[in-house]
């Protein structure tokens, strides 16, 4: 009993919410002012969803599930609200929220460095620059072109046909992935290798699993010896080992882009913006 309550707290929360909602909706003993109906329906729905989602799941699985759904719904809803926002400032802020949710999904995929870098680059630089440009260019309130969209029916239909095709392909085909064999980092050679488990728990331990190189295919993406996967060390080894020239090229690209941005941007002598 005690272990069950400790392992399934969300189930109990769901049951309690369900009961509270039924009590809320019940007509009272005294003929008093009726309670608002919508709140009771909301409480019952919340309890039911919590109970159904938490059935037959342990706490860590449930935590992963809840975090995934929070971040996924956050990203998709922020995207919808961003592309439908009438005010471009609100659109930029919704985009920032979508970026943060995407970074949460990166964290769930064992990419903490990438999440931090994306937050720094997007929320720190891109959003601020966009907001500056919006406020420079739109000083006179709402513009007519923000209130109307062009060809929204065609664009939405074709985009959702594309999304349906992607979903169909992802969910109908049995795609075989050659999974590498993961052994523990400190295990000796004679220990039995465990098949690669793809659990979504945070893997921030100092001893990450290393990959025994069994992957065919791309020479670059072959796991090399004791290269750890998913943390900063492995990413740095991959970036500055396999992709050193690409990193130099990316630096050159940044330089060229900054020079180009300075050259393209209007000068102040030619007229104030």
């Amino acid at each position: 009993m005690m272990t069950w309550t400790q392992e399934h707290p969300m189930t109990i929360v769901g049951l309690v919410l369900w009961a509270v909602g039924i009590l809320w909706l019940m007509p009272g003993r005294r003929a008093s002012k009726p309670r608002p109906h919508k709140i009771g329906v909301l409480i019952v729905a919340l309890g039911l969803v919590t109970f159904c989602l938490s059935c037959g799941k342990t706490q860590s699985e449930l935590a992963d599930d809840v975090m995934f759904w929070v971040f996924a719904i956050g990203a998709l809803m922020s995207g919808v609200l961003m592309i439908t926002a009438r005010n471009p400032v609100y659109a930029a802020l919704w985009f920032a929220l979508a970026t943060l949710s995407t970074c949460g999904l990166f964290l769930l995929q064992h990419a903490p460095f990438l999440a931090a870098a994306t937050i720094i680059v997007y929320a720190g630089a891109v959003i601020v620059t966009f907001l500056f440009v919006i406020m420079l260019a739109q000083q006179s309130g709402a513009a007519g072109y923000d209130q109307r969209s062009s060809q929204s029916l065609l664009a939405t239909i074709s985009a959702f046909v594309l999304l349906g095709a992607i979903s169909l392909t992802l969910q109908s085909e049995k795609i075989d992935i050659v999974r590498p064999v993961v052994v523990a980092a400190d295990s000796s050679a004679d220990s039995a290798p465990i098949a690669g488990n793809m659990s979504l728990t945070f893997n921030l331990s100092p001893e990450p699993p290393v990959i025994v190189p069994v992957m065919p295919g791309n020479v670059m993406s072959k796991a090399k010896g004791k290269t750890p996967v998913g943390n900063l060390k492995g990413l740095g080894k991959s970036l500055f080992g396999d992709y050193l020239f690409a990193v130099e090229l990316a630096g050159t690209l940044l330089l060229v882009a900054s020079i180009g941005a300075i050259a393209i941007a209007p000068r102040r002598e030619q007229g104030a913006i």
Partner: peptide
């Protein structure tokens, strides 16, 4: 993450740069 390699994250960093 699916293939347990670092290439996905490395490519994403280049995507971030671009």
């Amino acid at each position: 993450n699916m293939h347990q390699t670092n290439e996905g994250q490395a490519f994403t960093i280049f995507t971030l740069t671009v």
